[in-house]
Design a protein around this nucleic acid. Structure first.
Lengths: 236, 236
DNA sequence: CTTTCCAGTAACACTATTGTCACAAAGCCG
DNA sequence: CGGCTTTGTGACAATAGTGTTACTGGAAAG
């Protein structure tokens, strides 16, 4: 983790410097780029472990670059954290569809930035253990048994909680209903097949029930026809 | 913790040696005694942080010594772990009433012995944080939201779970119903006063519902007339 | 010993949660 | 488009959990 290389893409030198210093202090290696083209070259060339991408870039926006990276087989697995000037709903929703892994809104505290980078790296590396689970601003705390979105409590039943926990611990993979049943309800439990669907629905409902939130987190639970469901930050 | 001194009281030299070596390796200082009288003198003289006491001692049983230690102001705070040849129900129940802090049944693994000593020391020193809470063989795991007695699942409702968690985090102190209500239900919640009593009853019921267990763990929840309730391993 | 008070207990009504079902909607195939 | 499959959705009944109440039993006070 401490050896991860982060590519910082921002047209403002001041931002590059501040972020660079922050990440240096946190033990990351850093590369910098001031425009989308240079960034793309650096990514292919040096394969950073994560890209910090400014939303607004001259001559090719950040979102364009993100899209390109996702399309390309070689770069599609590299996590991206967007740096946005302000929390705009449209931006967030669109970014979600482009497969961005997280957002950090300027101005941000060094602490938060580092925390989010670590979270994303942990998630991508599949080393999600203990502690509270977090995806964007959706947090699940196994200890206090609470789920929040942007610090607003999300109400759901115990079964939905376990279902969400399972998904957050196993992101990006498709699970059959059988598999979900075994993992969430346990073996030796007979359930009518459609029961899973209903709980999926209830979970989605709970996730989108929070008002005043820019992202619809229920979209993270994707239906894979004839296969099962998947929890993913990437577009379906 | 690593500097704690443990007094080993056993009439068998072989046991004293084995236990002594085990504790040395675990970083504890050890004192040894082969009978109740010597043990008592050593305790007053050297004030060990914990006493490992053999149940059957020639010329004054271990239980007698435990009782004497609890009666005396000076020694009453020193935790005691009993070493018993076999898990006899009567012994355990009686020991519970004498205020023994834990039991280890011979033969025991060094690993288990050290683990139990550390648990008791942690509990007594009030540094019970994180992790799973344990008292004797009663375990509460905040993360998995499970309670077990001797690894057997104890069924109870969510409210009883929180109530038990509260008690296990705050042992040996008497709490008024008001205090319990605020801690477990939260402030700004109106409850009919007797409601607490009913939940206490349900928790006790749950704790004593497990079959094939030598100790009645419901006894740990003590009623303090006109004051409230207390969770304690010491006699009422 | 009697009275008074307090806690134990059982029973009840109310609510939340859960699994199931029936039907509507959407996707997929030729 | 038309038929078939799969999923979304609302409704429902059964169950578990919760708070309240009334009655019982035992301890403390007089």
């Amino acid at each position: 983790m401490a050896d991860s290389t982060i590519l910082i893409v921002d047209d403002e030198a001041a931002i590059r410097d501040v972020v660079g210093i922050t990440l240096d202090l946190a033990g990351f290696d850093t590369i910098k780029a001031s425009n989308a083209h240079d960034a793309h070259v650096s990514i292919i060339d040096q394969k950073p472990d994560l890209v910090l991408l400014d939303w607004m870039l001259p001559g090719g926006s950040g979102i364009e670059l993100a899209r390109r990276l996702r399309r390309d087989e070689i770069t599609s697995a590299i996590p991206i954290i967007m740096l946005t000037a302000k929390a705009s709903e449209d931006n967030k929703v669109q970014g979600l569809n482009e497969g961005v892994d997280d957002y950090v809104t300027k101005p941000f505290s060094p602490r938060e930035l580092v925390a989010r980078i670590k979270t994303v790296l942990r998630r991508v590396n599949g080393k999600e253990r203990d502690k509270s689970l977090q995806v964007f601003d959706l947090k699940l705390d196994p200890t206090s048994h609470r789920v929040t979105i942007e610090d607003k409590l999300v109400e759901m039943g115990p079964t939905e909680f376990r279902l969400l926990k399972f998904f957050m611990l196993n992101q990006e993979k498709v699970f059959s209903r059988d598999h979900i049943q075994t993992s969430v309800w346990g073996a030796n439990v007979y359930l009518e097949e459609r029961t899973i669907d209903v709980h999926i629905r209830r979970l989605r409902k709970a996730l989108s029930s929070v008002k005043g939130v820019s992202i619809d987190y229920s979209k993270l639970i994707q239906t894979v026809r004839s296969a099962g469901y998947r929890f993913s930050v990437r577009p379906a």
